[in-house]
Design a protein around this nucleic acid. Structure first.
Length: 255
DNA sequence: GCGACAG
DNA sequence: ATCTTGTCGC
């Protein structure tokens, strides 16, 4: 190895060179945890056991103060690769404060109701790689709104102890009445008679997002945070940032 | 039994 | 989630 570090004169074929901003922050390699569920039955048993540890009676952090972190995951199932990203924003300005990514092998197939077993190890690693405390964690998916009331946001909350909420793009199997057309309008997300979340309109006249409580945050606060984070677009800035980062990291991992 | 089903 | 071109609009 010549002085000055790796040889950068060798170039990938033109056009395959990553353009744009370089990845910043840490890039962790994830191992599938020992004892990670291998079957759907085992995974459901884990959910049934951990569900009792969810905390639902805390109001959660104040809106617009401290830090808020978005987490998301991208896949290349062909290559058995998963990349997670965690992006920390200043809650007042929504400026990016820190970023972290993690790469690993896909630990579980996609099964509705068992999404967390696919995403959690990589997300935990991405959170671990952050140089600062995450504050409130906003997940791409559900928390309480789940067949066994223990979705991704609940799972991540219990494992980390952090306050979490889930903001999903689809109603999953749940029912809801169309909320009012104005930004800020909401309607209950229902599992039969039980309210498990809210359909929340973040942009006037645009399809709502589906908010549910994860861990240590109440439903009203979860919606207030979501509205605060989704000023210019339908989705919260946290998930937009995390989504963009893990996709970019996935592409640059393949190359 | 059949279909639906966060990402 | 991912596969994918152009297209309409600010």
């Amino acid at each position: 190895m010549p002085p000055g570090g790796p040889d950068r004169s060798r170039r990938a074929p033109s056009g395959r060179l990553p353009r744009g901003r370089r990845l910043v922050g840490t890039m962790t390699t994830v191992r599938i945890p020992a004892g990670w569920p291998a079957t759907e039955e085992q995974a459901r048993a884990v959910q049934d056991e951990l569900r009792g540890r969810v905390i639902l009676d805390e109001p959660g952090p104040p809106v617009g103060e401290g830090r808020v972190t978005g987490v998301d995951v991208a896949y290349d199932d062909e290559r058995d690769v998963v990349v997670a990203a965690a992006v920390v924003l200043d809650a007042a300005t929504l400026d990016v404060v820190a970023e972290s990514t993690a790469v690993g092998r896909v630990p579980f197939p996609y099964v509705p109701g068992l999404l967390a077993f696919r995403e959690v190890p990589a997300v935990l690693a991405a959170l671990d790689g952050l140089p600062c405390a995450p504050g409130l964690v906003v997940c791409d998916g559900y928390g309480l709104a789940h067949p066994r009331r223990f979705g991704l946001a609940s799972h991540l909350g219990v494992l980390t102890g952090l306050p979490t909420i889930g903001v999903a793009k689809n109603p999953f199997t749940f029912a809801y009445e169309e909320p009012g057309t104005a930004r800020g309008s909401s309607a209950p997300l229902l599992a039969g008679e039980e309210e498990v979340g809210r359909a929340l309109r973040t942009r006037t006249g645009v399809k709502p997002v589906f908010v549910s409580v994860g861990h240590r945050v109440g439903a009203d606060a979860a919606c207030a945070h979501t509205l605060h984070l989704a000023r210019a677009f339908r989705l919260p800035e946290t998930t937009r940032r995390a989504d963009a980062l893990c996709r970019r990291a996935l592409k640059e991992t393949a190359a």
